[in-house]
Amino acid sequence: MIRLTDGRRAYLLNAPALLVLLGLVAYPIGYSLWVSLHRQNLKRPRATKFIGLDNYLSLWHDPAFLTSLRTTGFFVLLVVAMTVLLAMALALVLNESFLGRGVLRSLALLPWAMPGVVNGLMWRTIFDAKTGALNGLLTGLGVIDSYQAWLSSPTGAFLLTAFAQVWNTLPFAVILLLAGLSTIPADLYDAARVDRAGTLQRFSQVTLPWLLHPLLIVLILETMNAFKAFDTIYVLTGGGPGNATNVIAVLNVRTALTYTDFGLGSAYAWVITLITLVISTGYVAALYRRGSFEL
């Protein structure tokens, strides 16, 4: 009988899972990189050929891509900034003791449970120019005289789409920050109070340093989420008006699935991945070693 060492037994036991991961994750990722090096459009299967980096090089002269990249940049910036600020405020509130905190914490999670498509449909109904609840509310309060087409202006559509995206992803950031807040020893706040530190000082000298790691995770995950935001935007505006909300994920899905240009679509996907990787590395470099506490 063959006797296995612990190491070999571990590999053997993990082999089925590794094979599944290789087949379902690593292979498609590798294959998409290979496809991105080809001219491959299903409308012209016979014209498929290896073109090296041409798909990537063509992006720098592709106005649709460049416009989309700019839109995505602003979108990510706005969504991540709004998410971090609101999540921090909400987490600080939910970390306090008050009547109904448990119910409020549960309610705050609800948007996260909502699929992106449903989220998009809900906000589309709320923002509707003819029958939307937002118009009804603002007209009822006397804020506006008549119903407005909120999503018909490029700026309005962009801001409201970012808001809908934040609404969907905010709870996850709140959970992470709440978990971080719960690990801060109460002694530190007591000591700060003895030192006559005010609310702002306690926040900047105690809370924030302890939250740097959860914040790092929130920043990385929310940046990735904002870069790949698709379903809410697609349902809400379809990328319009014009190209005001035509973020790179929408362009990517259209190119690969609607126009069946898998070569160019895969190149878009790899560019998104690389940009996200660079930004995440930047976050880690800036925040990982910071904080006035021992790991």
């Binding site: 990328g239 319009g240 008006p241 014009g242 609607t258 126009y259």
Partner: peptide, 19 residues
């Protein structure tokens, strides 16, 4: 299909006065 999508985007820009 690609051209039609661009046409529709451009038409929206005309409607919103963006171009």
């Amino acid at each position: 299909a690609e051209f039609e999508a661009t046409l529709q985007q451009t038409t929206q820009q005309i409607l919103t006065g963006a171009v």
